[in-house]
């Protein structure tokens, strides 16, 4: 694909003991592109995401973020991670810090902003996710949806060039999923480059520029949502999409007809 890709992944391999999770993933993500990765659980989607900011070290393959090869030896990974925002399935908010402090701690300790600057930017990020009124609440006092929105604000506070979402709504009660997806949609509209592992087919169809279908550690098929949903090239893709819409997106399926 294009040479100006913001994120380039080339022939990524990862195995745990003898179990191969990733069997050679190659993927480019353009600036401002929203890519949703779908596929059965246990096919290496999350592992791939974690390889991108080296929370998991790939065994083989290369990853470039903009001009830097992050898989090269002696790269300062902490510097790279500042440019890659990550949102986790189980939020991982810092339990001892308020919502605002969760957002500002990275700014203060990693970006070395002054307390005043961090506070202002922190409030602004909370504003973006609609949680200014919860600034002084501790994670234990927030709903799951609110926690995830704080987690998104925390990642945004570092001014990331790309955001990774690892099943951001899987741990949420159904009625709380919408508020998180709305925030993500707004981000996409603002032009954030996003790589999202998710089962939310509605979001994939409405918001993404491209859907990547992964299975058994390889990319089976990828393309614009319309193509994947209505003219998949492979039988496996069609089967999976059918199964997943049975499970998750029945009403959305109907509403979009």
């Amino acid at each position: 694909m294009s040479d100006q890709a913001l994120l380039r992944i080339e022939d990524l391999h990862k195995a745990y003991h003898t179990h191969e999770i990733l069997k050679g993933i190659t993927l480019d993500v353009q600036e401002k592109e929203v890519v949703v990765i779908i596929g059965p659980s246990g096919t290496g989607k999350s592992t791939m995401l974690r390889c991108i900011n080296l929370l998991t070290r790939p065994d083989q393959g290369h990853i470039w973020l903009e001009e830097i090869e992050i898989t090269a030896p002696h790269v300062n990974i902490d510097k790279i991670r500042q440019r890659i925002g990550m949102v986790f399935q189980d939020f991982n908010l810092f339990n001892h810090l308020t919502a605002l402090q969760n957002v500002t701690i990275g700014m203060a300790k990693v970006l070395k902003m002054s307390a005043k600057e961090a506070h202002e930017k922190g409030m602004w990020e909370l504003e973006r996710v609609g949680l200014v009124d919860r600034a002084d609440h501790y994670p234990a006092q927030l709903s799951g949806g609110q926690k995830q929105r704080v987690a998104i604000a925390r990642a945004l506070g570092m001014n990331p060039h790309v955001m990774l979402f690892d099943e951001p709504t899987s741990a949420l009660d159904p009625e709380l999923i919408g508020e998180v997806l709305t925030v993500m949609q707004k981000l996409a509209e603002e032009g954030m480059t996003m790589l999202v592992v998710s089962h939310e087919m509605g979001f994939a169809r409405e918001v993404s520029d491209r859907i990547v279908f992964m299975e058994n550690g390889v990319i089976v098929e990828q393309g614009p949502p319309k193509q994947l949903f209505y003219q998949p090239k492979f039988e496996r893709t069609r089967e999976f999409l059918w199964k997943i819409s049975e499970l998750y997106g029945k009403d959305e399926e109907e509403s979009s007809e």
Partner: peptide, 23 residues
């Protein structure tokens, strides 16, 4: 302390020592 706390701190770009110290 849940393992996710260290992972989230590292993902923010904190060094190992900073993650230990602040999180």
């Amino acid at each position: 302390v849940p393992q996710g706390q260290m992972i989230a701190a590292r993902a923010l770009g904190m060094s190992r020592w900073k993650s230990i110290r602040y999180i």
